[in-house]
Write a protein that binds this DNA or RNA. Structure first.
Length: 462
RNA sequence: UCCCCUGUAGCUCAGCUGGCAGAGCAAGUGGCUGUUAACCACUGGGUCCUUGGUUCGAAUCCGAGCGGGGGAGCCA
C-alpha cells in the first residue's frame, strides 16, 4: 500500500491505487461526492471523487457513513484533476469504511478549533492540520539532532532517568518511591528511606550533564537526548514539567568552540526543517506565524552575535528607563532584558557569555578575573533562552572552592570530583530544550502544543 | 508561587446600570451546485463552571473554590 505522500509525489495519472486514511471533509454535489482523505504521511490530503452513477450498491451504502473523522479505504484510478485546488485526484470506484465517526458526537469539526480546546482532546488533535504538521516537524527535528552529532563524531550516550543523588542543582525534582505512603501516614511514623526501593531517596533526573561528563572524559565527544523532569511550579507557555533535552559535551574544547557548535547546531536544525518540512512550514507561515520561513532562512545564513554579560549590561543601562527592572552589573538578566537584546539590539540570535559567577552553576569554569564564569546563553527572538551552556571547571581545587561557595557537599559529588582528579581536561557543553526549538521552528506559541502529551502543573491527562 | 484577564449551545463568542437565553459556525432535514473553510432555507440543541451570599428577582453584583489564558519568577 502506498501512503498519500508517495501517491502525490510519485504516482502517474492512470494508475489504479487504493488509499487508506481518515476523512477530513466531505462535500456533496448532485452527481458527485468529494471526500478529502488524509493519512498523516504529509500535510496534503488526497481528494477522492465518487461519481454517483458509477458506484456499486455496496459502495453507495458505505458512502452514507463517510463523514469527518471516519477511517476508510478508497480504491480507484488516479487522474489529473479538472478543477483547481489539486493537481491530481482519485476517481473512486470502491469504498470500505473501517471505522465510522458519527458526526453528531465527533469533537473535531471541519472548522478551525482553538488550541485550548484541542489540548482537552489530546488524543484526537493529531488529526488536525496544525498538530499533524507539528508531529511531522518534531520527527524531522529529532532525526536532525542525531544526524548533526553523528556527522561530527559525537557518540550518543544514554544517561539515567532515575537518579539517587539530589545534587544536580538544576531545579526542583520529582521524587520516585515504591513506599506505601498512605500506610506510613496512617501509622503516623516517620518515613524510613532506607526501606525504599533504592535504599535511599530517588528522583527523576533534571539533567544528564553530570553523568554525560563521565563519558565525555572517555569518548571525547558525546551527547544525550532524552526526557528531563522539573517539578517547578512553572505556569508559562515556555515551560513543561517533562521535556526533552539535548546535551552535547566536548572534551578538549573551550568556550569559543562551544559557541561555534551551538551556532552550527541551530543552523543545521533550521536548514533541515526548511529542506524537509516545506509543506508543513508553509502552513505555519500562512496560518500560525507569518514571516516564519523568511526568518528561519535568514537565521540559517546569518552569523550569531556575541556579547559578554558586561557589555550586555552596558547596552541595557543605556536604555534603563525602558525597563521595569533596572539593569546593573550583577543582576540576573530579566526576560525583558533578554528580549530587548535579541529582538532590538541585534535583531537575531545572540550569545551572551561570561556571566557573574554568583548567577551561575558551580560547575562552570571560573575566568581569570575571579568574578565571572565561562557561561553562555543563546537567546533568540520571540523564544528567549533556547540554549544554556558553559565551559566546565576542570581544575579540581577551583571546582571544590566553587562548591563550597554554593554550600554544596563535596562528598556527594565524589565521582564528579574524581573526573578532575584523574585525567582531567578542559571540556564544554550545553543544553538545548527540544520543545523550545520546536516553538522556534514552527512558530507555535505555547510549548504545550509542540509535544504530544504535555505534562505541566495540574496537567497529566492522557 | 505572584499579578491581570476569563468560564454562557458541540466550537468561537455576544448578552449594557440585575427583569423571558442569543448569533455565527457545527449537527439534522430539504434544495442547488466539479466541490474544495462550498452555498441557500428550515429544524433541533443550554446544570449560563461549582458553591455560598445580596435581592421581589442573578448569566449579570459580592465571597470562596475549581478550570482556562496572558504576564512575572524559576529555567531548557
Amino acid at each position: 500500500m502506498q501512503d498519500i505522500r508517495s501517491v502525490l509525489r510519485d504516482t502517474k495519472p492512470g494508475a489504479s491505487i487504493t488509499a487508506k486514511g481518515w476523512v477530513r471533509t466531505r462535500r456533496d454535489t448532485k452527481n458527485a461526492v468529494f471526500v478529502e482523505l488524509n493519512d498523516g504521511s504529509c500535510f496534503n490530503g488526497l481528494q477522492c471523487v465518487f461519481d454517483a452513477a458509477s458506484l456499486d450498491d455496496a459502495a453507495r451504502a458505505s458512502l452514507a457513513q463517510v463523514s469527518t473523522g471516519a477511517a476508510v479505504a478508497v480504491a480507484g484510478v488516479l487522474v489529473e484533476s479538472p478543477a483547481a485546488g489539486q493537481p491530481v485526484e482519485l476517481k473512486a470506484s470502491g469504498l470500505t469504511v473501517y471505522g465510522p465517526s458519527p458526526a453528531d458526537s465527533y469533537p473535531l469539526q471541519k472548522k478551525a478549533h482553538s488550541f485550548e480546546f484541542l489540548r482537552e482532546i489530546a488524543h484526537l488533535r493529531p488529526r488536525t492540520n496544525s498538530f499533524g504538521a507539528v508531529a511531522r516537524v518534531r520527527n524531522q527535528m529529532a532525526f536532525a539532532v542525531h544526524s548533526f552529532f553523528q556527522e561530527r563524531g559525537f557518540q550518543y550516550v544514554h544517561t539515567p532517568i532515575i537518579t539517587a543523588s539530589d545534587c544536580e542543582g538544576a531545579g526542583e525534582m520529582f521524587q520516585v518511591t515504591t513506599l506505601d505512603l498512605d500506610a506510613i501516614a496512617k501509622r503516623g511514623e516517620p518515613v524510613d528511606w532506607t526501606k525504599d526501593f533504592f535504599g535511599k531517596r530517588a528522583y527523576l533526573s533534571v539533567s544528564g550533564q553530570l553523568n554525560v561528563e563521565t563519558y565525555c572524559m572517555a569518548l571525547g565527544r558525546v551527547y544525550t537526548f532524552g526526557p528531563t523532569f522539573r517539578a517547578e511550579n512553572s505556569n508559562t507557555p515556555r515551560h513543561l514539567s517533562e521535556f526533552w533535552m539535548i546535551e552535547p559535551e566536548m572534551a578538549f574544547a573551550e568556550l569559543p568552540e562551544n559557541m561555534d557548535l551551538a551556532e552550527a547546531f541551530i543552523k543545521h536544525l533550521l536548514s533541515w526543517a526548511l529542506e524537509r518540512c516545506g509543506d508543513d512550514l508553509a502552513f505555519f507561515d500562512k496560518r500560525i506565524q507569518p514571516g516564519l520561513i523568511a526568518m528561519l532562512d535568514s537565521v540559517r545564513s546569518s552569523t550569531f552575535a556575541h556579547m559578554s554579560y558586561t557589555d550586555a549590561v552596558k547596552e541595557l543601562e543605556a536604555r534603563k528607563d525602558d525597563f521595569e527592572f533596572k539593569p546593573f552589573w550583577g543582576c540576573d538578566l530579566q526576560t525583558e532584558h533578554e528580549r530587548y537584546l535579541t529582538e532590538t539590539v541585534v535583531k537575531g540570535p545572540l550569545i551572551v557569555t561570561d556571566y557573574p559567577r554568583d548567577l551561575k552553576a558551580f560547575y562552570m569554569r571560573r575566568n581569570d578575573d575571579g568574578e565571572t564564569v565561562r557561561a553562555m546563553d543563546v537567546l533568540v527572538p520571540r523564544i528567549g533562552e533556547i540554549i544554556g551552556g558553559s565551559e566546565r571547571e576542570y581544575r579540581h581545587d577551583v571546582l571544590l572552592d566553587a562548591m563550597k561557595d554554593k554550600h554544596l557537599d563535596p562528598a556527594s559529588y565524589w565521582w564528579y570530583l574524581d573526573l578532575r582528579r584523574y585525567g582531567s581536561a578542559p571540556h564544554s557543553g550545553f543544553g538545548l530544550g527540544f520543545e523550545r526549538l520546536m516553538r522556534y521552528v514552527t512558530g507555535m506559541e505555547n510549548i504545550r502544543d509542540v509535544i504530544p502529551f504535555p505534562r505541566a502543573p495540574k496537567q497529566a491527562d492522557f
